[in-house]
Design a protein around this nucleic acid. Sequence first.
DNA 1: TCTTTGAGTTCCCTCAAGGAACTCCGACTG
DNA 2: CAGTCGGAGTTCCTTGAGGGAACTCAAAGA
Lengths: 151, 151
Amino acid sequence: MQRTDFSRMVCSIARTLDVIGEPWSPLILRDVWVGMTRFEQLQADLGISRKVLTERLNHLVEQGVLERRPYDRRPRHEYVLTEKGTDLLDLLMVMTTWGDKWLAGEPGPPILYRHHACGEISTADLRCAGCGAPMHAPDIDLLPGPGAAAA
Amino acid sequence: MQRTDFSRMVCSIARTLDVIGEPWSPLILRDVWVGMTRFEQLQADLGISRKVLTERLNHLVEQGVLERRPYDRRPRHEYVLTEKGTDLLDLLMVMTTWGDKWLAGEPGPPILYRHHACGEISTADLRCAGCGAPMHAPDIDLLPGPGAAAA
DNA sequence: TCTTTGAGTTCCCTCAAGGAACTCCGACTG
DNA sequence: CAGTCGGAGTTCCTTGAGGGAACTCAAAGA
């Protein structure tokens, strides 16, 4: 956990960082997404310290992003994404888009997405949930919302 | 910087984390986005340690996300987003969407987006860049891409 | 000349991350 | 039934990043 607590800030970005902003957390989510759901698998794949992996998994479970589920009568568990966690994958998809564009370089993207609806290899783009037109940072104005701190 | 170096991993998510995965970096970007472009402003607004702020800004400049620009003949600088950095704001927008939905609670979102194209208050949604239909994690298959490590 | 101000540096202290070894417990093996 | 295995953590030690306050530096202004 970063020393400063972001969860009290009046900002959805800061609050989100409080859930998955710690080092390794997004990579843990990525692995769970692609089916690496068990402690030993995650540890071996990521090369993360077992101590930190335990801390991260506990935090993600506490935050309701992952669910710890027994898969045997023995003390064996696997971690699965909740709905809240599945929603977070949007974030990973956008990180992938950006990394592919700016950091993949010569060899190109390590992973491709095939969209079920159209069957094509494609990438995710941000669109306005209302009108469907592209919606990136330069396309919007920011206004204070109901949850903004009182002046 | 997290102790383990993510930049060598064959994964666009890990590489992206290497650029903005450190604590505070996304919040610095957010502030620069909304016009807090100077060292003292950032430090005061975030309450971040000056030492860490210096480190983060240097890293973001090195990575080509921010540009350090003099705004006076005195040693005075401001930080502005490059194109690479502006592209990263997609990530902040998606974090905002998720945080608004899952963490804002009773008071509601602190910030609202008004979309220039349609003039409406709206949120960003992920769509297929090809066909335009919604594209979230359950809507895609993952395939190895050209940049995947050789087996 | 003295002060102010933006933009960092420096220094010390604490706590988180890395890493290896150790524990616990039910299940198989002979 | 004793011994072993394998998954899932704990414990412990060391290093180094983050917090915080004080200090520096250079140009402009009074």
